[in-house]
Design a binder for these strands. Structure first.
Lengths: 200, 200, 200, 200
DNA sequence: AATGAATGAGCATTCATTCAT
DNA sequence: TATGAATGAATGCTCATTCAT
């Protein structure tokens, strides 16, 4: 009588969304069957029914976040003026996200990095990488793409972990170097040697 | 009477070491006043006495891990043949660590990344970055050094998070590009142009 | 559609077997509709359908174990050389089982002893006793047979509960005494006087 | 403010007593930190503080029950008329207990038998046996004493498990046979043949 | 006849923290 | 200054059972 909510399709999905909300708000440490049940407004037993363990729930959450970013990245690249260098496009994307939706970026990285200690998440983390590589496939070679993922991760983390400001231009230069794009304008503040050969 | 351990200098230090051991074994999630007290073989009350909160303990642990890596990096660079490129030296160091002391690397990254959600750790994470930058100071400019830190982090995480193998040669090439060192042998699988000017 | 296993005769039987397996592995405490469904590879609902309560399932399991032991006992007695004393034959049987299939003996006793707290099992436990008494019927009188059951239980439990070794010769002597078989050879290790004064 | 019951010596003891009460009422299956806390009227955390696991609590409970029975046995033997045979004295004791304090006997056996599945209890179960053996030390030899323990266990269980009535005279005869006390008067109700062929 | 979904109760256990000494 | 005892809150998880199909 209290809550006769039998037959609720899409509940599984709602639980995953609630998990993302909870992790975004309180971190993975704040994720529990209880918190997620409260957030999704479902009975406690429902969360354990659909996700026998928290790891299972984290896997679903990471995969969902993953898909979100993959889509975003493809859209961003599609919308970028074709004569913009890939490095600049990516640096811009990072800048936009770190500026405007920093919490979302934090959430994604927290889930992604959780794979460090949770083997169950590792395949999904690998999918994440592959999904970005795939999105970059028609703009650079696979090896460079993989390097780009590492560099973007490193740059984001540096901004996130040290409370430091994200410097888009600097990011662009680093990405360009990795891509061997023309980094003509010398890196600000750097005393680097005169020049590099043109790219592509 | 049972354990008359009054006046035990160095106990604080032992507790920090125990914390590192515990995190290495069970992750930050496995760190508690209790587990660390058991590992250090001190009374429970002693851990709360010396470190009022777990964050305080984590700060001390991260700083200690930090110092350890800083020292290691300096030694490694000092021992490297002077004609070896910086990129090669760093790629080698990462390879050695990921091969032989992967657990230690995992531990360090877990503590370092915890700053994502724990503001108290952020200054220490920043110190870590600065310490690496300092160690690289006489081999490259500060801006490139900072980029190098990001790239090394990204490369390590890629290996750690996806269970993927670490490819030292590939890492060397990426680092060389970021440093603008001559990546003479073209990146395997890449279709990059012939050459770059020598470094150093 | 996923598992079109409609019409599966023998499923009830398979569930009972699965229950025995589960109890053998994890004890009665580990028996649940879920564990048994997983072991039998049938849907959860199937177990509750065939056995409305766990007690019902335990009754079926105990009865099956019971039949197994009854058969074994009869065979063993039939195969024993006719001039072997009953005590020796039984002591040998216990020794063989405690040596070679200790886990099975544990399983049987766990189910049998569960009757202590589960009235529903008591009739089946009584059947067990009767079944052994029947198997001994042509070798001794019913009263002695009943005593023999008690003694065999006590001896097995002593071995199982205290991790102690089972001493077949000692068991033979005790059984022989109970059967009034020639107890002539004094109990090994005993320094008992030649006789005891008549009782009461 | 709610219950400022700090400093309550003897609480540990009270918890063990509560455990015995709970097991007596609801069986080991009914024993939980919660039920025992409620019975002892202490906070839940107090039970886990004093007994980190339920096994620890069971060990303490079994040991306490053990001591109780040991004391009872010694007293009973001391109070028995010196010319009463040991078999008769023991059969009488069992009869009294199964008649007047059956619940207590059930409780003791449930704890004792739990050692079957809980290795942690096995040493205590062994202590139990030894304690009975010791109590019988001056009335018979150790080997017979150990046999007596097995037979008493078997007889009690037969009564307890099958809801059958306990027949004191029959028990006396069996015990007397095991003790080699003069079992002259043939087992009541038995139509046993004069003898069995000598056993090997 | 058979079963997947659902749920509220309960569990053992761990924990940070408080407090009296 | 240290520390053992104590405790209320919370956690992940399992479960018997119910119900709609």
């Amino acid at each position: 009588m209290a809550r006769p909510r039998r037959h609720d399709p899409g509940r599984r999905e709602r639980i995953v969304d609630a998990a993302l909300t909870v992790v975004g708000r309180a971190g993975i440490a704040g994720l529990s069957h209880r918190t997620v049940a409260a957030e999704a407004d479902v009975p406690l037993g429902s969360t354990t029914y659909h996700f026998a363990s928290l790891d299972e729930l984290l896997v679903a959450a990471l995969r969902k976040a993953d898909e979100g970013f993959g889509r975003l990245l493809r859209e961003h690249l599609a919308l970028t003026a074709p004569d913009t260098g890939l490095a600049a496009a990516l640096a811009r994307l990072l800048g936009e996200r770190l500026g405007g939706e920093r919490a979302r970026v934090e959430l994604e990285y927290e889930l992604y990095l959780a794979a460090l200690r949770r083997p169950a998440l590792r395949p999904v983390a690998a999918e994440w990488t592959e999904s970005v590589v795939a999105a970059l496939a028609h703009r650079t070679d696979p090896v460079s793409a993989r390097a780009i993922v590492a560099v973007m991760d490193g740059l984001c983390l540096q901004a996130l972990l040290t409370d430091g400001a994200y410097d888009e231009e600097r990011a662009r230069v680093v990405l360009a170097r990795v891509l061997n794009e023309a980094p003509r304008p010398p890196l600000a503040g750097s005393s680097e040697p005169p020049a590099d050969p043109p790219d592509t």
